[in-house]
């Protein structure tokens, strides 16, 4: 049996899992404040637009966090589908990975347009 190419999908999963753990809880806390009607000053249109439009590094960071988190979630969801007894792994993988890639490309496009 040949060595598996699983590292291609697993490595970004592991990196994304780390990114989610470090960043998504605090980001979710911020948007939770927004949901409760208290928009933090830094999340206003002017400040979001200014630090994202002017700083390439900020764009890259946002893209990196989103793309890796999306990939990691897609990969884990693929394994979860199997654990729930859905035995059509190839189809599930194709759908979920494609969704993660499409959402990442959309994020890149939006960041580029800013």
């Amino acid at each position: 049996m040949a060595k598996s190419n699983k590292p291609v999908v697993w490595f970004p999963f592991a990196a994304g899992g780390t990114v989610i753990a470090f960043f998504i809880p605090v980001i979710a806390l911020l948007t939770l404040l927004v949901a409760f009607g208290k928009v933090p000053a830094g999340l206003s249109y002017e400040s979001m637009h200014s630090w994202l439009a002017d700083c390439v590094l900020a764009k890259l960071a946002v893209f990196g966090i989103l793309a890796l988190s999306l990939w990691s979630s897609a990969h884990r969801l693929r394994c979860t589908c199997f654990d729930f007894g859905l035995r059509i792994d190839t189809l599930v993988a194709a759908v979920l990975y494609s969704a993660a890639i499409v959402a990442s490309l959309a994020a890149a496009m939006f960041l580029f347009r800013l």
Binding site: I24, M48, H49, L52, L66, L70, A103, A106, R113, L114
Partner: peptide, 16 residues
Amino acid sequence: VGAYCVLLVCGLGALA
């Protein structure tokens, strides 16, 4: 988490 990230991408789209 995945759905939340998609929501963030939508927010980015609105910002753009």
